[in-house]
Design a protein around this nucleic acid. Structure first.
Lengths: 383, 383
DNA sequence: TCATTATATAGAATCGTTTCAATAAACGCA
DNA sequence: TGCGTTTATTGAAACGATTCTATATAATGA
């Protein structure tokens, strides 16, 4: 009897129970030598089961049935062993990874910096971490990154639409991603994608109103690239104020930046377009630039041409990027509340995430934040 | 004897064969209703086992035994079903997630921008994604972020030591993290942490040499905060050149930036320290600033005081951050090859990752990159 | 006193992969 | 012919957590 039983056992060892007896010791040993501490180690150390350990450490609903005494013992064991839950295993079950994708079109654009900080800060509060990607204004790179982020199952997507014109196809890509998505800097009619924008129309109106109030009447404009939505919005605001105030917009004093992708070239373009403006020999006492970088280029061109800013010509920009306060002269501009934009985007994303977690419907929201006029040295009343 | 055997078999049935008969159907059905497509669905669709599918799709070593015909059938099935491997499950086994942690001390510091781009770009090439954290120059925030990154099992860590003084304790934290770690901007003697730095000493020497060559002899210095390693290095380079060239460094023309944490305040500090310098009424024809932001502040102070830059006083900075080329006058400076620094850091990190994957030893490397003098408008020969 | 209900814990299944170990067929060669 | 490889494929066992389903005891109420 002993013999066949032994055989059976041996068989079992190989097929089924095997890992439970002879091997067990080796396994236990090798586990000891391994540096990764699992929940089972904590279970063993504390004398409870892995289940209980999990419940306690996650403070799951069932934890209310577990006496404090047990809890502390488990917690102590975990601490003693230096237990850190394996996030891959966790994610595998929970399908969550506390990570959101942040997609930027060009990090070197100073417009991004503060928005990124706003995003980062709010994510931090929520114990989320961003996966940051930079499309370099290149569509295929954007698409590849989108793929990578989805592959990694980020819980939400925040897209910073600085500069690059987001078109229908890109939107479609985003829409079919099926995860909460927020676009910053571009509003859209999508039912599934949220957006955070700034009142650019109002901001542009206010800027022009400011120049007008300073007595300027002959005002030059360096408009943004036609393809850029922002350019349209800002111009609309300008037209509106002009109409209301009975201000004449001289076509000869209006130039457009070319359509192109590099935001840092904005300075050079601003420079060139301002030279063009000067060449037209139509005097002006103020210049309103599409954005701060353009304004900076304009100031350089004016200075080069012997026109003093702000003494002989006021210049105003848009955005209030970090360096704007630092230029000489420091730049009057329309501030976009960038940190707030980032924070708002994160809030929306978080709402989307929890809606999805609780299987609720979540309607995309479109939020528009106010802009703010910031007056510095580059604008001055007409003498 | 029969009894135990039967029991045993039954046991097996329940434990092992069980899921194969009655349940299987139900499971398959419920899987159909689920929207996630697993490798088993592909297996079923293609008529092969999950194992084979995995081997083919990952092009594992064993794939060499699998005939092309089978491969295409599997690939077609995968495509047809729109199969995307679950990265959590993958990571759970492989312990890899193709992600590295990037820790910055202050993203709003323009010094970061190009380095971040360099990092991002190299990671992209390697199909890695960065988890970006920003410590806001706050130690506890840094520590919390470090914890979060380790929890997420990033495969490597790249720390951008801009501004904040990394001290022993922080280093210890990093060292015990046990994953490949690269610090940018700060060299150290650690055996386990790699570093990428710039030849700041040589750069500072070159900058001073440049001023000297332009004929400047009365040169003022706004040195960096004493606690900052960079400040020491740059000053050393200055001393070296002065000694070699027999140039006299007038103590009255030397001021130090205060120890503090905000890089953007650098401009204001530069402004104040330059005012202080002017107050001393000891004439100078050139000023060498700790960095570009300081230089900018200096230019503002000089301009305000009626000293024209560069006509009456040359100013040179250090770093060549993005806005430096845009200031009026544009700034002569010592360029740190920031993108290259980021790229180098990533390369080192990748080497560390593959060493670890192949269980090789990996010795930390300390790499120093050359800096480069960039001449623009803010420096000019003495009349 | 006995049937409930609340409390406290554990076993086993599950998440979706990868990989180890096994096997079967086909092939080559002595 | 038969034996050792190579080729082609697979079942089952990890990976490390969470959670569903028991189960055992203690407390409660009728």
């Amino acid at each position: 009897m002993a013999v066949p039983k032994k055989q059976l056992v041996k068989n079992q060892e190989m097929v089924i129970i095997g890992p439970e007896d002879g091997f067990q010791v080796a396994t236990a040993k090798s586990r000891k030598t391994k540096n990764t501490i699992t929940i089972r180690d904590v279970a063993e150390e504390s004398g409870f089961s892995a289940t209980t350990v999990s419940i306690v450490l996650n403070n799951a609903p069932l934890a209310r049935y577990i006496p404090p005494h047990t809890k502390t013992r488990i917690q102590k064991a975990a601490k003693k062993l230096g237990y850190h839950p394996n996030i891959f295993a966790k994610s595998l079950r929970s399908k969550r990874n506390h990570t959101v994708g942040v997609m930027v079109f060009d990090v070197t654009d100073p417009y991004c910096t503060l928005i990124i900080r706003g995003i980062e800060n709010s994510l931090y509060q929520a114990s989320y971490l961003p996966m940051m990607t930079d499309a370099h204004n290149d569509r295929s790179r954007f698409e590849r990154y989108l793929e990578m982020l989805l592959e990694r199952r980020v819980e939400a997507l925040i897209v910073l639409a600085n500069w690059l014109f987001i078109d229908i196809n890109l939107l479609a890509d985003l829409e079919k991603s099926e995860i909460p998505t927020v676009i910053i800097g571009r509003d859209l009619e999508s039912k599934s994608i949220s957006s955070v924008t700034v009142d650019e129309e109002g901001g542009a109106s206010a800027a022009l109103a400011h120049l007008h109030a300073l007595g300027h009447r002959k005002i030059a404009f360096v408009r943004g690239p036609k393809a850029l939505m922002s350019a349209k919005k800002r111009w609309k605001g300008i037209q509106k104020f002009a109409q209301d105030a009975g201000l004449d917009l001289d076509q000869k004093l209006i130039v457009d930046l070319p359509d192109q992708l590099n935001p840092n070239v904005g300075v050079e373009d601003g420079y060139r377009m301002t030279e063009e403006l000067l060449k037209r020999k139509k005097g002006f006492t103020a210049l309103m630039a599409f954005d701060d970088m353009t304004a900076l280029g304009a100031i350089r061109a004016l200075t080069k041409a012997g026109v003093k800013v702000p003494e002989q010509c006021s210049v105003i920009g848009f955005d209030d990027v970090i360096p704007s306060a630092l230029f000489v002269p420091s730049l009057s501009t329309v501030r976009q509340p960038m940190e707030a934009m980032g924070a708002t985007a994160v809030n929306i994303a978080m709402d989307g995430i929890s809606a999805r977690a609780e299987n609720r419907e979540f309607a995309a929201v479109q939020r528009k934040l106010p802009s703010e006029l910031v007056l510095r040295e580059s604008t001055r009343a007409i003498p």
